[in-house]
């Protein structure tokens, strides 16, 4: 039917340019250009929106997620490391504190023991001293008693020889004591 007209309707190259017109202004090509533009651009739009772009988008999103995930893991590990460091430092500090306390306590007990021993030794020494002093005093007293007796006997002898009179030992002792005051 219209098939015969078809061949006549086709643009023959050269004819239009012979008139000096722009090929772009040849309206006979418009229908064909629009038809194929709709087909090709429509195809491109479908392929891009259904296949290509979702794929590119998902790869970019996956990479973004991966990077975010890796950064989060790194942050978590960093936090764990710093927590471990903090725990180590606090353990170190408490150990140091305990060591100081222990040393203090030991020093105190040692000091107390030393004080106690020293006090005991002092007390022993004091006792020995007191005893020794007491002994010396007793010895001195005894010696002094002997001296009086010897002196009174000597005095009685001397009186008997001088005046021939017998003096009792009690009187002589009394006389010696009164002289010594």
């Amino acid at each position: 039917m219209q098939d015969i007209e078809t061949t006549e309707g086709i643009v023959v190259p050269g004819e239009e340019h012979a008139e000096g017109g722009l090929p772009q202004m040849n309206a006979e090509t418009y229908a064909s250009q629009l038809f194929w533009l709709v087909l090709t651009f429509g195809f491109l739009l479908v392929v891009l929106s259904k296949v290509a772009l979702p794929k590119i988008g998902s790869v970019i999103a996956a990479r973004k997620d991966r990077i975010t995930g890796d950064l989060e893991t790194a942050e978590r590990l960093r936090k764990e490391a710093s927590d471990a460091l903090a725990a180590y430092e606090s353990a170190l500090a408490s150990a140091r504190g305990r060591a100081t306390t222990l040393a203090d306590e030991k020093r105190k007990t040692v000091n107390a023991e030393m004080d106690r021993l020293k006090a005991a030794a002092d007390a022993q020494t004091q006792t020995a001293l007191t005893e020794a002093e007491a002994r010396i005093e007793e010895t001195r007293k005894r010696a002094a008693g002997h001296v009086q007796q010897v002196a009174s006997e000597a005095a009685a002898d001397i009186v008997e020889r001088l005046i021939g009179e017998k003096v009792s030992s009690a009187d002589a002792l009394q006389a010696v004591q009164s002289i010594r005051g």
């Binding site: 078809t6 309707g9 086709i10 643009v11 006979e28 090509t29 229908a31 064909s32 250009q33 038809f35 194929w36 090709t40």
Partner: peptide
């Protein structure tokens, strides 16, 4: 006329 042309 929707001929397949060099433009198409």
């Amino acid at each position: 006329d929707v001929s397949f042309t060099n433009a198409s």
